[in-house]
């Protein structure tokens, strides 16, 4: 398949950040088949936006913004891409081990479950926090103030702590 020069660069970017794409898709989509579609949609939107990437932003900020925006907006509507354009390709990201096999730790299973129970925006915030992003970077990705990030993260963490405590007791 002949690739455009930018395409090679794009594939390298996707390869280097595939973990971000997978984790965001996994947080918004539990079902394996739907998650595959979501990963495709995210990759597609990244490709469409790639020529306009503004280097003043960190690459990860740009990827998180698109991945989260796609996951929340398009997937919530369950618009199937093939209705709009035409069917896309097969699986873009493959897990060598089954997804469920990765969650061997019961705490990790609970954590994933808890994240999926959060509201869509809270979920984005918690995901970025767990990813170890700084408050200013989270604020930049979400478009809110750093103090708001801090307040919200504090509240969600408290909910999380209570959930873990009640489940374990």
């Amino acid at each position: 398949m002949p690739l455009l020069r930018d395409a090679v660069q794009f594939l390298n970017v996707v390869d280097a950040n595939k973990g971000i794409i997978y984790k965001v898709a996994n947080a918004y989509c539990r079902d394996k088949e739907s998650r595959k579609d979501l990963v495709q949609e995210i990759t597609l939107q990244l490709w469409l936006a790639f020529p306009k990437y503004d280097e003043q932003f960190m690459l990860t900020t740009w990827i998180y913004r698109i991945a989260l925006n796609v996951s929340i907006s398009f997937f919530r509507k369950q618009v199937s891409r093939d209705k709009i354009n035409h069917p896309l390709t097969d699986e873009i990201l493959t897990l060598m081990a089954d997804g469920e096999q990765l969650d061997v730790d019961s705490d990790l299973i609970m954590l994933h479950e808890f994240i999926r129970q959060l509201k869509e925006l809270d979920r984005a915030l918690m995901l970025l926090y767990l990813e170890g992003r700084s408050q200013s970077e989270i604020a930049d990705i979400l478009g809110i103030t750093a103090s708001n990030v801090s307040t919200k993260v504090g509240r969600i963490k408290e909910q999380l702590r209570q959930k873990f405590t009640s489940l374990k007791s």
């Binding site: 503004d54 913004r65 698109i66 989260l68 925006n69 990705i141 979400l142 478009g143 809110i144």
Partner: peptide, 9 residues
């Protein structure tokens, strides 16, 4: 879609 999440949403 590459704008801040809250603005786009």
């Amino acid at each position: 879609l590459s704008e801040a999440l809250f603005n786009t949403q």
